[in-house]
Design a protein around this nucleic acid. Sequence first.
DNA 1: CTGTTAGCGCGTTCAA
DNA 2: TTGAACGCGCTAACAG
Lengths: 339, 339
Amino acid sequence: MKKNKITIHDISKHLGIDSSTVSRALNDSERVSKKTKTLILNTASEMGYQRNVLASNLRKRVTNTIGVVVPRISRHFFSSVIQGVEETAYQAGYNVLICQSLEQLEREKKIIDTLVANRVDGVLISISMETMDYNHMQGLKNGGIPLVFFDRHCNIPETNNVLIDDFKGGFDATQHLISKGCKNIVHFSGPQELEIYKNRFKGYKEALNKNNIPYRKEYVISSRLMENDGFENAKKLLDSNLEFDSIFSANDVAAIAAIKYLTDKGVKIPDDVAIVGFSNEPISTVINPALTTINQPGFEMGKKATDLLLKHIKNENGLLNSQTIIMDSNLIERQSSKK
Amino acid sequence: MKKNKITIHDISKHLGIDSSTVSRALNDSERVSKKTKTLILNTASEMGYQRNVLASNLRKRVTNTIGVVVPRISRHFFSSVIQGVEETAYQAGYNVLICQSLEQLEREKKIIDTLVANRVDGVLISISMETMDYNHMQGLKNGGIPLVFFDRHCNIPETNNVLIDDFKGGFDATQHLISKGCKNIVHFSGPQELEIYKNRFKGYKEALNKNNIPYRKEYVISSRLMENDGFENAKKLLDSNLEFDSIFSANDVAAIAAIKYLTDKGVKIPDDVAIVGFSNEPISTVINPALTTINQPGFEMGKKATDLLLKHIKNENGLLNSQTIIMDSNLIERQSSKK
DNA sequence: CTGTTAGCGCGTTCAA
DNA sequence: TTGAACGCGCTAACAG
């Protein structure tokens, strides 16, 4: 039994004041006397009035809402980003629509259509593994809805991006292992369609190169981002009988699974295995307290991306050029308290 | 530069057909000739028309959207639930608004207000740690918006709930440890304000009782759901010099942290430590592949809760009584492949 | 400072 | 089967 909501007209009739004045009062306009304003606000709350945001948005042609699209909300990096987005957005008076593509292009398409249909004011997106172009984002452009990519971007011109220096991350991780005396460094990589994994891989190669360690392609094991891939990675590694003294993994999901698999098989994992992709993930240090990780500043990235997006939203005349912000990841070397 | 979206009126003028007919065609009404319908649909897509959902919803007084409120999207159990919710909702043609309270009552209040203001058709909620009553949910009632609690509910009558038999979970976990020969079972508990932790605790006590093992309150360490609490728990445990042969933890966050702390300190964790609260959490088995867990069917719970909510939404006359569904958790005993 | 008027874009009457 | 008219609830423009 849907109760009839009370509207500004109900308040209007009840008080004998025109609805437009009521509207102004409820919007805390300057052009209402303090007296009538408090009167209206009081009776509004007495009558249990709640603004119909739909109607308001329709009239204002603005929703004060931004959408954020991530592959999976359960991945720690992405939920950190979302937290940063929410904090920044809320402070600026914006709502946030959280959407997950589950790494599926089809879902990503639908999500974007829905966001456009709901007239969000802007969109933040980290593309799915299956996304190779941005045709499905045309709807945003047509609707004049600003778009900012973060972390996983489309490698196309004229876009706004907030990215991490993945080349440097890959380089630092590998360099760290080398300086620890490692020579046979296995690299677990991610889907090569994604720029981020390509760049981490490039960093890996460059570090080897700089240290005169030959690059051997059999030391690189690429995979999708599923837990099972980690098992497969580890299995391949063991079956190949490769001699290795360390691992640089460019993705956390597979890395965790791989470490589990190797541990199960009784293979000793070097304490200073490096993993990229954790973003302060508490789990990483649980698995191995001595693990060195390349931490990605998800929270800060969320804030920066939102800042950039809001600038675009508020600056609708298109004077703002497209722009790319590059952030640094941090190599965190932990000390185990174990002897 | 916001481009002007094209509306049904644009199509109307372009074709010389009235906008009401266009509307009907776009809604696949029976009362439009096939010929004009296809004509309209074609030109609509040619002109790049996209329905303004705001206006549509305002007019229809229905949003085809449900809100789901969880404490944290990053917790594996909750993201599993969300996945179940999304699957069920999408199939039924509903959108899902994902919201996180971050365990804060204030945020929960604001979220609910926002959901009401946006006229969602229904709400699923797992309350925050700070939520003791349901006063702030009055807005939903006033708006006639159906509400279903899942997992963490308010202990009040006349509500719809989808819950897990936490008493049984606690009992099973403890019984498992006892049957393995454990006698000194430590219990890590959660915030006692939440029914679920109370019930798991009751199950623990009942299992001890049934097996003639005296309950000792110093074996129960309660905490909030933060990583740091896990460290504190473990520290308390070590400092107390209690003799213990196993742990039954009612919450995963603290458990993971505790296990890390103990491992760091060189304390051997028994292989069959039981943990409640994982919902197939892959991490649990990484930390300790032999870990026995009480798995919570998050995905299925999300589906059931959504089913129940949708029934209420479609049955607006209030004939449907409030109802509580209890689901079972599963004790999963894993075999380590380690010798 | 307040009231009047006119839509935002759409869906649903009621006629024809 | 189609069109005309109205209104969902709110806000912006213009008066006064």
